[in-house]
Nucleic acid binder design. Structure first.
Length: 781
DNA sequence: GAGTTTGAAACT
DNA sequence: CAGTTTCAAACTC
């Protein structure tokens, strides 16, 4: 634990706390964050994140939601007015940076946080922690906007998703803005014009813009001050002074967000006006309509959106969730981004409204829940999904490189771990939010983020594929290896309402990429999905829980990589493999990156992660799971073995990787050793990772995943409240796991302990969280 | 891309 | 609880 990295983190943290901004934030929040706690156990970012969590209301299911809640709390307390008086703000500020901020409207909040003299750019230059701040603050703004009648959750979601995807946003938004400006619709004139300028300039910059963005994203991800600064410079040069503020923000974050944000605003207006839904006229109208708020919303959103995305997990954040629609929140779809893009594109082309055109998911089935549905409430992903991501992670990495959207890419678990600030914060927020907001689905939020991120990345990479038939897409993705992040199902008879369906099992709605038939696992059929889920849960309360569980005992301290309990992670029920020798993904244990245990009834077990008989495979061999940087990791354990060494190294020096992006953290959790080709098993990765995270242990014996430890710490902060009811009430094995397998044992005891002993909470909490897979689904209605 | 294999999930 | 069937992913060709 005394690693240099750690020290650095602590120092940065202290700086952060000392910073005026931090103080300001503290002053804002009614509750005062306990620095000591976070400091001791979590990275700076986490501590930072803790604040928002405090504000969060219990009802939110998804992290995103939680975020929003937090944000809301902020906005409400600090500045309720901002939302209303958007235009005013603009005029007030004289300083360019300030103006920009004001233009953003609610963005002023950000300014508040910063010292008057401090420019955003400076802030960006500052410690990575700042990113976290932005994330927090921005979210507020977003929330605020979302809270306004105009904002639809769906648009927000779109934006968020689009962020990951590089171009979509710009395309859609720009036209609107330009058009509006040309016609002089924008009375706000200056404001709108400014926006237009930005957009145009971006375009002018050329096709390279995307690349630039991707590059920027990379910079952002790493949060290295230098990198961000450099990027910022580029942007500033290209952009007008007025736009600099945005540019700085943008530089830090994917531009798409901004565009999308603006778009979102428009969309919200659309929703208000049914008539606006289609046609250019509609667009113009929208522009004018939104126009007043456009800039503010836009900037604000961009800031919040981009920041949020980057800081948080990147993809996850649906800015606008209605408080009422818990399901949607929880349900967030992982691949939404893709769909959203397609929808947007359609809209652009057709001029039709996005929501309807895209997917059922987008279409609001119920009047009350429209917002959520539009959003495509992704069902909360399980931790399992995270665990599964391990495989994806590899893919993700590559994707990241190519796309530049780092959110998705987490090279290795270690990397994520390293990311102290933003990433942690994001994770932390999600976690906290989950804990506070949701009782039922604590775990998923954190996981979801990771998954979403991975998925999003995958989508980004594979956008092109989307257009093809689902199968093709899938295959392409699989072949590509990188794309694996997003899972899709091919259910034909189960209607995606059984655990056979990966999507359903993972707690997510099926999306376009799925090639399922007669699918009921869609927001439209929310009721059915929930009912079915309940039914299944009634049968097996842990049906949606991560399949892989980590024992609390294994929880190693961050520093304790050496203490890898071989069997720390185990499959909940064990496998029954007979022919695969537990060496293929057919084996859930193997798939989850954990060794077989006593619970397993497998025959001829040769699980690379740990054999049933207890003979753990040589660590080197076992470790395939961890991340392999190898892009080509094939199924083989062999490759995994190779990876092991790398992992070990990483473990020892987690900090070295220190990428700041929050996303990374999530990703790290997600990453699995599996080959890129294989789909990213939602459940597996999540399972393994989730469990790991919670317990702090790695997947199986190998100790492959270190990042998890970090995560675990974060999770530790989660309060008992988070625990799912099932878990809470039922520490007894009966409710929980059927089998008395080691897995189950580990699980149940910790849970019980959680209630009683604070010491190990982290492990417990984590476990509990992991259990509820479908937070959203569970009716909080 | 089609077909086979595999084992979990569901059913009896 | 055990056995069987169903199902979809994983895998192979």
């Amino acid at each position: 634990m005394d690693t240099p990295e750690k020290t650095q983190i602590s120092s940065s943290l202290s700086k952060f706390e000392d910073s005026p901004v931090f103080n300001y934030i503290n002053s804002l929040s009614p509750i005062k964050p306990v620095k000591s706690v976070h400091l001791t156990q979590t990275f700076n970012p986490l501590s930072f994140a803790s604040l928002p969590s405090i504000f969060t209301s219990p009802h939110l299911i998804s992290h995103k939601e939680s975020r929003f809640l937090k944000r809301h709390s902020y906005t409400d307390t600090s500045k309720p007015e901002l939302s209303s008086g958007e235009g005013t703000k603009v005029s007030t500020n004289e300083e360019a940076g300030v103006e920009a901020g004001q233009l953003c409207g609610s963005s002023t909040e950000l300014q508040e946080n910063f010292d008057p003299g401090v420019s955003l750019g400076e802030a960006s230059l500052e410690l990575p922690n700042e990113a976290s701040r932005f994330a927090i603050e921005l979210p507020r703004t977003l929330k605020y906007d979302c809270g306004s009648p105009n904002c639809d959750p769906a648009p927000c979601v779109i934006e968020t998703n689009c962020v990951s995807e590089s171009n979509c946003a710009s395309v859609s938004i720009v036209p609107f803005v330009q058009e509006a400006s040309e016609k002089g619709l924008s009375d706000g004139g200056v404001e709108v014009a400014g926006v237009c300028q930005i957009e145009q300039k971006r375009e002018n910059i050329g096709c390279d813009w995307e690349n630039l963005i991707s590059d920027t994203a990379d910079l952002l991800i790493f949060n290295s001050p230098n990198g961000s600064e450099a990027f910022r410079d580029v942007i500033q040069k290209s952009l007008d002074p007025d736009t600099r503020f945005c540019a700085t923000l943008i530089s830090r974050f994917p531009q798409n967000d901004i565009n999308e944000v603006s778009e979102t605003t428009i969309d919200s207006d659309k929703h208000k006006d049914p008539s606006l839904q289609t046609g250019e006229a509609v667009e113009l109208k929208e522009i004018t309509h939104a126009h007043g708020n456009f800039e503010n919303a836009r900037l604000t959103n961009c800031m919040s959106g981009s920041l949020t995305d980057n800081v948080e997990t990147g993809m996850c954040a649906p800015f606008s969730f209605k408080p009422g629609s818990n399901l949607h929140r929880g349900l967030r779809r992982r691949c939404l981004d893709f769909e959203m893009l397609a929808a947007r594109r359609k809209n652009l082309v057709d001029g039709s409204n996005t929501s309807s055109s895209v997917d059922n998911q987008f279409v609001p089935s119920k009047p009350g829940n429209d917002s959520s549905r539009r959003i495509l409430p992704g069902i909360g992903l399980h931790l399992n999904a995270l665990a599964t991501t391990s495989r994806d992670n590899k893919n993700i990495k590559h994707e990241t490189l190519s796309s530049g959207t780092q959110k998705l890419s987490f090279p290795s678990s270690t990397t994520s771990i390293l990311l102290p600030t933003a990433g942690q914060e994001a994770v932390h927020e999600s976690l906290t939010s989950v804990s506070t907001e949701r009782e039922t689905d604590p775990v998923e939020n954190g996981v979801q983020l990771a998954e979403d991120a991975s998925q999003a990345s995958a989508y980004l990479v594979n956008e092109e594929f989307n257009q093809n038939s689902p199968k093709k897409k899938r295959r392409r993705l699989e072949q590509a290896g990188e794309t694996e992040a997003c899972k899709r199902c091919n259910c034909k008879k189960s209607k995606c309402l059984k655990l056979y369906c990966e999507c359903f099992a993972a707690g997510v709605y099926c999306i376009e990429p799925c090639s399922c038939q007669d699918c009921f696992n869609k927001p439209i059929h929310e009721d059915t999905v929930l009912a079915t889920r309940k039914q299944i849960e009634s049968r097996n309360p842990l049906a949606f829980a991560p399949k892989v569980i980590r024992s609390s005992d294994s929880i190693p301290e961050v520093g304790d990589d050496s203490t890898k309990t071989p069997a720390s992670a185990r499959h909940k029920r064990g496998c029954n493999c007979k022919k695969s020798s537990c060496l293929k993904k057919y084996c859930e244990c193997y798939q989850g990156g954990v060794g077989c245990s006593i619970n397993c009834r497998c025959e001829g077990c040769k699980n690379a992660f740990g054999r049933k008989d207890g003979s753990a495979i040589v660590e080197t061999e076992e470790e395939p799971e961890e991340e392999e940087t190898d892009p080509c990791d094939k199924n083989g354990v062999e490759k995994n073995l190779e990876k092991t060494d790398i992992l070990d190294n990483e473990e020892q020096n987690p900090v070295s990787a220190l990428p700041t992006t929050p996303l990374q953290l999530c990703r790290s959790l997600v990453q699995l050793p599996f080959s890129s080709k294989s789909k990213p098993p939602r459940s597996f990765i999540a399972i393994g990772s989730s469990s790991t995270l919670y317990n702090g242990q790695r997947y199986g014996k190998p100790n492959i995943i270190r990042p998890q430890n970090i995560v675990e710490k974060h999770f530790q902060t989660v309060t008992e409240d988070e625990m799912p009811e099932i878990l809470r009430g039922n520490c007894s094995p009966g409710t929980g796991i059927k089998t008395s397998s080691p897995n189950s044992k580990r699980i149940s005891p910790p849970q019980c302990e959680l209630g009683s002993t604070p010491g190990r909470r982290s492990g417990r909490k984590l476990i509990l969280q992991s259990i509820p897979s479908f937070p959203s689904l569970t009716p909080q209605h």
